[in-house]
Write a protein that binds this DNA or RNA. Structure first.
Lengths: 134, 134
DNA sequence: TCCTCTATATGTTGTATGCATATAGCTGTT
DNA sequence: AACAGCTATATGCATACAACATATAGAGGA
């Protein structure tokens, strides 16, 4: 059982093991997915879900971040009239977006170090989850 | 050199390698520090700095989070009239705060997995930093 | 016709960060 | 005694983002 449900003091954010937000982390993920292959927003939502974004991926977050990244010049989009279903916006990554991925990767690595620093200290004090069983 | 400085597309957040925020992560860190030993806010700022929080730790963030955690019941505080310097608020962690640490640890571990998922994919595509040397 | 699925977009709200600033007591210096 | 500097806590403001709800619209099937 997820430990966080023992701690019922989290009020805001009803779901998804709160306390930490999805945050700006969608952007590097989307960029990496687009680097793998171009896609439209709806497809990205599905792929994000399989990509560690637990539960529901909010459409608003995805589309707004795509827009923002297009403003940044990290992605480009063009309307694609599909033969089945409504028209959709096909996004591709730009060279600048590729640069951004590398920049993000550095930060992600840095963030991981911080989290690791916390967990190391935590496990040093409380042990490796033994005192944690339910 | 930090790769992020090559990427000059970050507009918001002038400093500290932006794109990721310090976020709610201060709370688990503070709780763990208080578990080690009780402290007042000013001391926590210094210890946080040594604890992975690069650069400047904002007093506002620390004091506000201490207040919030006191509302949650995770910490308690009492005024302490020191013989040298102004009075200060001494914080101690409560049993509920200790519970919260365990809850946070689960989330931190979960977050780390997400970041690791990104980095694994990233390194699988771009290699282990070779294509990254300045 | 109506419903559902695909697909994109926007409005609102709550909350957090980052920065600046206010306040105040104590200490050492000139 | 006045002043600057350090310790210590607190608050106001602008910005930004997540989360949620909702709007729009085309296509296909019952």
């Amino acid at each position: 059982m997820c430990n966080c449900h023992k701690v019922h003091h989290f009020r805001h954010l009803k779901e998804g093991c709160p306390g930490f937000r999805m945050e700006k982390f969608v952007q590097p993920c989307i960029l990496l997915l687009l680097y793998e292959r171009p896609a439209h927003g709806y497809e990205l939502m599905e792929r994000l879900q399989r990509c560690g974004f637990s539960g529901n991926v909010d459409p608003g977050v995805v589309y707004r971040n795509l827009r923002k990244m297009e403003e940044e010049g990290w992605v480009k989009s063009e309307w694609e009239s599909s033969e089945s279903g409504p028209a959709r916006r096909r996004y591709i990554i730009t060279p600048e977006g590729e640069d951004a991925i590398h920049g993000f990767a550095v930060h992600v690595r840095y963030q991981m170090e911080r989290l690791k620093g916390f967990l190391d200290k935590y496990e040093k004090i409380f042990g490796n989850g033994e005192g944690n069983s339910n």
